[in-house]
Write a protein that binds this DNA or RNA. Structure first.
Length: 119
DNA sequence: GTTGTGACATGCA
DNA sequence: ATGCATGCCACAA
């Protein structure tokens, strides 16, 4: 077999292992959160078994605008809405959570003890 | 191959 | 309790 054929065979036989990106894993987990429940960034990272809370936030921020992923069900470890570049986004998140029946206390934080979703 | 960038989570004062 | 410094690491440039 020629050298060229060997090279061709190598690339043809060995399918590129397209492992899911971190973002895709995040989407997968977040999509499991039922309405009226929330998960923390760290919880999502731990659930994936990869990355950190910060990265989860980064991933969510990169979601396309009309994504069906319920990104609003992810909050920080205090049960609060993390500040971000676009405050509109935070407002929309609070609005959606309220719509799902989640209540916020005087600190604009929700009670994780009652709303936390544990897979 | 390197580097800069954050929707966070802790620990410590 | 409450604020600040530090570690974190996938991804795009």
């Amino acid at each position: 077999m020629s050298h060229l054929n060997r090279e061709i065979l190598k690339t043809a036989t060995k399918p590129k292992l397209v492992q899911p990106t971190f973002l895709q894993k995040v989407e997968l987990v977040v999509s499991q959160i039922p309405a009226g429940k929330v998960m923390t960034y760290g919880q999502v990272a731990q659930c994936i078994g990869q990355g950190t809370a910060r990265l989860v936030g980064m991933a969510l921020s990169s979601l396309p605008k009309g994504s069906s992923v319920p990104w609003h069900r992810v909050v920080n470890t205090k049960g609060g809405i993390s500040p971000r570049a676009n405050p509109q986004s935070s407002l929309k998140q609070i609005q959606r959570l309220l719509d799902e029946g989640i209540q916020f206390n005087y600190n604009q934080e929700l009670d994780l003890k009652s709303y936390r979703f544990k897979p």
